Simulated assay, not measured.
Amino acid sequence: METVSSRQLYSNRWISVREDVIRRADGEDALYAVVEKSDFAIVIPQDGERFHLVEQYRYPLARRCWEFPGGSVAGSVDPIEVARQELREETGLRAAHLLALGRIAPAPATSTHYGHIVLATDLTEGPHEREPEEQDMRSAWFTRAELETMLTDGAIVDAQSVAAYALLLLHERRVAAES
């Protein structure tokens, strides 16, 4: 595809939306909407068979959602540093070890951003440092069995958290095969 023209439709500090006229392989022009967002990190805080999740109100879904901590940091491109900051802000946890597990594109048909999945281990607890819009956030530890039940029962609907857990399982399988 070739971009013929592009115009910005909307922008704020978190997101911008543009409309492109594209030329398809068959020579026909078409419209394409693109959402531009910063890359983000999803952190899997793991302590043995326990996982730390956060719960917050997600306005577009009109419900509270459990998910792994995460977010983006303006100007930062280092996923490990973003993960470290988001973990501290949202949960108060500090990790001695952070390991990048993979990268996902949560909405490749419409959005430019990638998510970086990071495993956090050797955790110590401290005070959280939540941003004003995160003040209603709660956090708690869950066993692996509880986490998996939440995934299958719809308590966790965040696609990034589901993908993060899948990458963790693949990582664990690879480590076990190497042992």
Score class of each variant (00 low, 15 high):
Leu9Thr: 03
Tyr10Lys: 09
Tyr10His: 10
Ser11Ile: 13
Asn12Pro: 05
Asn12Gln: 02
Arg13Thr: 13
Arg13Asn: 04
Val17Cys: 10
Arg18Leu: 14
Glu19Tyr: 12
Asp20Tyr: 04
Ile22Asn: 00
Arg23Asn: 04
Asp26Glu: 02
Gly27Lys: 10
Gly27Asp: 00
Gly27Thr: 04
Glu28Thr: 15
Ala30Asn: 07
Leu31Gly: 06
Leu31Arg: 14
Leu31His: 10
Ala33Val: 11
Val34Met: 11
Val34Cys: 08
Glu36Ser: 15
Lys37Trp: 01
Ser38Gln: 10
Ser38Met: 14
Ala41Trp: 02
Val43Cys: 04
Pro45Lys: 07
Pro45Asn: 09
Gln46Val: 07
Gln46His: 00
Gln46Asp: 03
Arg50Gly: 01
Arg50Leu: 05
Phe51Lys: 05
His52Met: 09
Val54Gln: 04
Val54Trp: 01
Gln56Ala: 13
Gln56Met: 13
Gln56Thr: 11
Tyr57Val: 04
Tyr59Glu: 14
Leu61Ile: 06
Leu61Val: 05
Ala62Met: 07
Cys65Met: 15
Trp66Met: 00
Phe68Val: 07
Pro69Leu: 03
Gly71Asn: 01
Asp78Lys: 05
Pro79Cys: 11
Pro79Ile: 05
Pro79Thr: 03
Ile80Val: 15
Glu81Gly: 07
Arg84Trp: 08
Arg84Gly: 00
Gln85Gly: 08
Glu86Val: 06
Leu87Met: 06
Glu89Ile: 09
Glu90Trp: 11
Thr91Tyr: 01
Thr91Asp: 04
Leu93Val: 03
Leu93Lys: 01
Arg94Val: 14
Ala95Lys: 08
Ala96Gln: 15
His97Ser: 13
His97Ile: 12
Leu101Arg: 08
Gly102Met: 01
Gly102Cys: 08
Gly102Ile: 12
Arg103Val: 00
Pro106Asn: 06
Ala107Asn: 13
Ala107Gln: 13
Ala109Trp: 08
Thr110Arg: 07
Thr110Ala: 12
Thr110Leu: 08
Ser111Val: 00
His113Pro: 09
His113Trp: 04
Gly115Ser: 03
Gly115Trp: 05
Gly115Phe: 01
Ile117His: 08
Ile117Arg: 04
Val118Phe: 02
Leu119Trp: 05
Leu119Thr: 06
Ala120Cys: 09
Ala120Glu: 03
Thr121Gln: 06
